[in-house]
Design a protein around this nucleic acid. Structure first.
Length: 376
DNA sequence: TCTGGGGTCCTAGGACCC
DNA sequence: TCTGGGGTCCTAGGACCC
């Protein structure tokens, strides 16, 4: 019987690496991607480029990606740029250029598909690949039964490098859960192949947070129970975890810790929702900043409409998201008799939602969303 | 120097219908 | 008028991920 071999491929510091292709003089330097458009590099008459540094940054942006040199200063993605500036003031700051990243994203996925076509998209810089039926993947090399699949994975990595000039890290195991963990074991530019038999030695010593699906909340609760590593989680009774975390999540935790996961690689999914949101430069008040808020609100509705139309969808549920100055977040939504995709209808429905919110506190974020999508 | 923007999935309560 | 159980839809919030 053929073995199931699933790969997880993760591009190394993707946005930053794409920027290094265009600005090779920054290789090896601490570079941070994030923030708005206000820190575009400029070219001097002699052709040399001038870059903004973190030191001068003022605003509410966060780090989207940091190069490995920047990570050495303790800068990581999700960190506020103001905080990052304290840790690495001399680091270069570049604005995000999603157009460019999407282009490289398509290029690396095409390069993978030339070798192995069964691919599940997991965002702009990572994918799962089912290698089980790729020619050669089931072959042993000498006495190594994983030799064939290792060669296939290496070929994928070579093809990505050839097509994009970028490196990636790959984990190959019997399932998605383990492959996701494995791809991080030898980063950057690494390849890790793991069998079931290696779970105790390679997976169990890792912290529970490495499991995709254990986030800050569950991680903290597990820590409170004295469970730090995946091995310690695996050692707990299923019944205990169900008692602590509920039926569904408790069972899932137990399975995950033992490396059990039979989810298939899903090649194509319909979108569930489309949304646009924005955090203001300063907190806005519903009454005092009424005109500005109204303008932003209409703009978000128009952007959602454009996104829907461009991709050929309409939404039957229109919703809004508000974040107040104290970071409390509320949502309201409204299901319409018919799906809509035009800016006026979305704006109107979103306006109905807004009437159901107490607007006495100042706002830092506003968002508009379309859900219950139908294909046009 | 608090905390972006785009998503998915799950839960839970209430309305409503059979 | 009271008592049921089951199913589906809608809404709100929250955890998590990239």
């Amino acid at each position: 019987m053929p073995r199931r071999w699933i790969a997880h491929l993760d591009m190394d510091a993707f946005y930053a690496s794409v920027e290094l292709l265009r600005y090779p003089e920054l290789a090896g330097q601490p570079v941070v991607i994030g923030g708005g458009r206000r820190h575009q590099p400029s070219t001097l008459p002699d052709g040399t480029r001038r870059f903004a540094t973190l030191a001068g940054y003022a605003g509410r942006g966060v780090v989207t990606t940091a190069t490995y040199a920047a990570r050495d200063y303790g800068v990581h993605s999700g960190m506020g740029l103001m905080k990052a500036a304290l840790r690495a003031p001399a680091a270069i700051l570049l604005p995000t250029d999603f157009e460019r990243y999407r282009h490289y994203s398509r290029a690396f996925k095409t390069a993978v598909a030339e070798v192995a076509p069964v691919i599940e998209d997991r965002g702009i810089d990572e994918i799962y690949i089912d290698l089980s039926d790729v020619p050669g993947a089931q072959d042993a090399v000498g006495h190594d039964p994983t030799g064939g699949v290792r060669a296939v994975a290496q070929e994928i990595r070579n093809n990505v490098r050839r097509a994009t000039g970028l490196t990636c890290s790959v984990g190959v195991t019997p399932n998605k859960l383990l492959s996701k963990i494995a791809s991080e074991l030898d980063k950057p530019d690494g390849l890790t192949v793991l069998t079931e038999a290696e779970i105790p030695a390679r997976i169990w010593p890792l912290p529970v947070r490495r499991i995709n699906g254990i986030g800050p909340k569950a991680g903290a609760r597990l820590l409170g129970l004295g469970i730090h590593t995946i091995g310690e989680l695996a050692a707990r009774e299923r019944a205990f975890l169900v008692e602590q975390f509920g039926r569904a999540y408790g069972r899932w935790l137990h399975d995950a810790a033992h490396g059990h996961d039979d989810r298939p690689v899903q090649t194509r999914g319909e979108p569930v929702s489309m949304s646009r949101e924005t955090t203001f430069d300063r907190d806005l008040h519903a009454v005092r900043d009424r005109a500005e808020l109204s303008r932003i609100f209409s703009e978000l509705a128009a952007q959602v409409a454009t996104d829907l139309q461009r991709r050929g969808y309409a939404g039957r549920t229109i919703g809004i998201k508000l974040r107040f100055e104290d970071f409390k977040t509320v949502t309201r939504d409204l299901t319409l008799p018919q799906a809509v995709s035009d800016a006026a209808a979305i704006r109107h429905a979103a306006g109905q939602c807004l009437k159901r919110v107490d607007l006495s506190r100042r706002l830092r974020l506003l968002g508009v969303r379309a859900g219950s999508l139908v294909r046009l």
